[in-house]
């Protein structure tokens, strides 16, 4: 029995097709006799990204009135009590630069006492708002008014929006300084975004 080249090539091709389909995962089945549904899975890559677009707030220089505790607030209408320095207005600005809504936790790298010093009475508080871009934050916010911020992460926004028109949080601060605290002080604010 003699086979010609075309025939051999055809059989070889059919064999390659069958083997390839086996490896790809296609299975030969009988004719469908009923309606069936198929599932298509697709993975869309998403990412979380947050960034301090304003990452420095300097309360400046000043002295506490003897016998008093100075109270400094960074928001525009805030107080500047028992402090010889100028009233400072400013804030940190946090932006959602990812393509997901995220929850935001805030924490510091040191306690209020470690930050300010003095014998007693030092406090450090934060307030988170979305006044600049309303609807940026939906959900639970521990810092709707000034509340203590410390080294333990606390929820600052249950759902921080990522859309360009509403993806910005304003973080203001209030510091209570006892009159026996002195020196140049810094503290770091860390934001943690999770989705």
């Amino acid at each position: 029995m003699k086979y010609d080249t075309l025939e051999i090539t055809s059989y070889a091709s059919i064999a390659v097709i069958a083997i390839s389909l086996f490896f790809i995962g296609t299975e030969l089945t009988g004719m469908a006799t009923t309606n069936d549904t198929g599932d298509v899975n697709v993975t869309i890559t998403d990412s979380a990204g947050i960034n301090f677009t304003t990452d420095l707030l300097d309360f400046g220089s000043g002295a506490v009135t003897p016998g008093q505790t100075a109270v400094l607030e960074s928001n525009g209408t805030g107080t500047n009590l028992s402090w010889s320095g100028a009233k400072v207005t400013g804030e940190l600005v946090l932006e959602n630069i990812g393509n997901n809504n995220v929850s935001i936790m805030l924490q510091t790298d040191k306690s209020a006492q470690e930050f300010i010093g003095g014998s007693s009475g030092a406090t450090f508080e934060a307030m988170v708002s979305n006044d600049s871009e309303p609807l940026s934050c939906v959900g639970t916010n521990t810092f709707t008014t000034f509340a203590p911020i410390n080294t333990t992460p606390q929820l600052a926004c249950g759902s921080f929006n990522f859309s360009d028109a509403a993806d910005e949080l304003i973080i203001d601060f209030r510091i209570n300084i006892p009159d026996d605290a002195t020196g140049a002080k810094t503290i770091e604010i860390k934001a943690i975004g999770t989705y």
């Binding site: 947050i50 707030l57 940190l92 946090l94 002080k185 770091e188 999770t194």
Partner: peptide
């Protein structure tokens, strides 16, 4: 998987001078 992103580095500074007595 749960994804996290950290934005560290927001800095607050203040210079507290001794009271002038």
């Amino acid at each position: 998987t749960q994804t996290q992103d950290h934005a560290g580095g927001g800095q607050i500074g203040i210079d507290i001078q001794p009271p002038q007595v």
